[in-house]
Design a protein around this nucleic acid. Structure first.
Lengths: 364, 364
DNA sequence: CGTTAGCACTCTCGAGTGCCGAGTGCTAAT
DNA sequence: ATTAGCACTCGGCACTCGAGAGTGCTAACG
């Protein structure tokens, strides 16, 4: 069932006019747009064909046509032409991303806000660890007789710490001994292997009766679990309200509520590999709430075994081409910034690599 | 211009009926509500008086009355009776707050979400440091020839760290020396006193030519500035949409955009002292966007020289009494949890006080 | 004098109606 | 295959009208 060239042109015209104007597109409008020499009657019969093929639909008998979700699908797969983002937008993105490299969490947030602002649709940004994270190194810092600090270096080059107040007292030699043992037995292993048995054995080895090892182990497990965790964040949900399909407050509310629920957000479509752009149109979405919305998402490599994701949610009448351009540009910029460039970064900014323990991907 | 008892009762009735029903209140409805033996005609003339006093208004000639902002003000100041929150809500709050003590950032977030959910209005939560924060202690941990970790304990009992990669190399003895000097000269002083002169002097004292001191100083300043920073967060903005005064999408959008802007949010009314509940009604708000909305906010003591704030934004037809009850309960719970109880906490949870370096008030 | 019943009046809201225009599908001619 | 012409459909808009809610005023009453 391949489409004639002319039908393709017409479908493209309908999609683009509808995306732009949010109103059913009539045959006249198509004629004008195509600047073709055929008359509106011809277009009408072509459009009737397209409708019977399930690519267009009529809201009511005497209205123009709008694309069906299949129509959008064809458009996205075959007809959409690569658009480049405007120079202005590129400048905005470059400068926003370039500013401070900031911290991963802030970056995630910033990327979401920026995408949302530029596309005028809500955007979500996530990051997730690939591969396993383990502890690379422990240090215990004695503060006073009942207080010490745990400092851990993770295998993905972030540092985490915790201040511990004890009800019992602890001496520096004990901490030294403890840290030696921890470095020997808790490092380099995944979270699942920090078992009660291991904890008990370690307690015996250092003669800990105050439960200090248990505290440290608990903290360690928490860290490692957290490091694997997926962080999700939505920005600019309010943007939905400016699109006519959401002029009905209840409808808007339902979908915004849906998008604000982190659990649901995590289930949104996600591309398989970095660089891939995934587009999910209307009923292709698993979630009922998104039955007449579309989702576009792209993955990027954020370095340190972390993959980032930026996505956009909008009505099916979304400007797929523009959003695709934005997402690609953004993902490319981020990969460049975070992924390939880790080592070079150190040269640009000769002394520090920002792995401030207090920010990390995976935090809400 | 004191009101007769009966006028007060009528004003109260009008406010409460209007809050409940969102429709102008007629004299009949007031009669029913008051179960008073006077007739609707009497109420009518009383209401006419109240209108001429500027406490009620009529949307149009033949409608009932709605409270004016002055009317709400009188209601809030004099007529509102202390309401207790429902047992169910109390249970929800208790259990949510009790769960894990979690981390300050998460707690802030959770408090906002919870308040928003229970009140059905958008809520904002902030925290700000009172008093000055300084560094209490430095530790430098040697990792390898070009890498070390800075660990700092702040005067407010939080720990921060940073992993530093150098392009030059560094030896453990140098780090030891450095940390001794830092502990001598950089601790106990506010951020303003970490001057270029101090940095230069320290560099000379330890013979640092690689700019290590400068890195550490930069990090320290960043930390201290950040520790003073006010963090703000809004939750449940979407809740606005369920109230009839925001059935107009544009209006809703304007105010949500306003509330989503952190700079604006920081300017929202704030009570002066912990425990105080501040109510700002309609035109009392400085911001134009809030001219027909009301804001209620309460402060609480979050311990460690930190003050927290929870606030709620809604239409002027807000359920002041219910929200007041919720905010008070919440603030009380939080003060109890974070403020007064710091030391007792250690007994409940005998060994740890959660000051995970990677979470802190003041982060967005 | 405060209160009240009665009444005329005002104004909103929703239902009902008719018209306009955009757009279609069909047919017959090219 | 394309096109002009035409009858037809249907949503949207303006308009009207009546119902209903609520008011203010007045005159009567205790």
């Amino acid at each position: 069932m391949s489409l004639s060239e002319r039908k393709k042109e017409i479908l493209r015209a309908v999609v683009e006019l509808y995306v732009k104007g949010a109103e059913p597109v009539g045959s006249r409008a198509v004629v004008e747009k195509l600047e073709s020499s055929v008359s509106s009657a011809t277009i009408r019969s072509e459009m009737a064909d397209l409708e019977s093929m399930g690519l267009l639909e009529q809201p009511h008998t005497s209205a123009g046509r709008i694309p069906s979700s299949n129509g959008y699908r064809i458009y996205v797969n075959e007809l959409m032409q690569n658009q480049h983002i405007s120079g202005d937008d590129a400048k905005v993105i470059d400068s926003e991303l370039d500013g401070h490299l900031a911290t991963p969490t802030n970056l995630l947030d910033k990327v979401g806000k920026l995408t949302s602002r530029l596309t005028t649709y809500p955007a979500y940004a996530m990051a997730s660890a690939t591969g396993i994270v383990c502890i690379a190194r422990f240090d215990l810092i004695y503060v006073d007789y009942s207080t010490f600090i745990i400092v851990t270096l993770l295998s993905n080059d972030t540092v985490k710490n915790k201040l511990v107040h004890l009800t019992t007292s602890v001496e520096p030699p004990m901490l030294t001994k403890l840290s030696a043992v921890l470095n020997a037995s808790f490092t380099g292993i995944p979270e699942e292997r920090i078992t009660p048995a291991l904890i008990a054995a370690t307690e015996r080895a250092v003669g800990d009766t105050a439960g200090i090892v248990a505290i440290i182990a608990g903290f360690t497990i928490e860290l490692l679990v957290e490091a694997k965790t997926v962080g999700t964040h939505i920005s600019g949900a309010v943007n939905l309200l400016s699109h006519p399909e959401f002029k009905d407050v209840d409808k808007a509310q339902r979908i915004i509520r849906y998008l604000t629920d982190e659990k649901e957000l995590a289930k949104l479509p996600s591309p398989n590999s970095p660089g891939e752009l995934k587009i999910t149109i209307g009923p292709e979405n698993l979630a009922n709430e998104l039955r007449d919305s579309s989702v576009m998402a792209i993955k990027y490599d954020a370095g340190n075994d972390i993959q980032g994701l930026i996505g956009v949610v909008g009505p099916t009448r979304m400007d797929y081409s523009k959003v695709a351009a934005h997402l690609s540009y953004m993902a490319q910029g981020l990969s460049w910034l975070l992924g390939g460039l880790n080592s070079d970064l150190l040269q640009l900014n000769p002394s520090t690599k920002n792995t401030l323990g207090d920010e990390h991907f995976g935090e809400e």
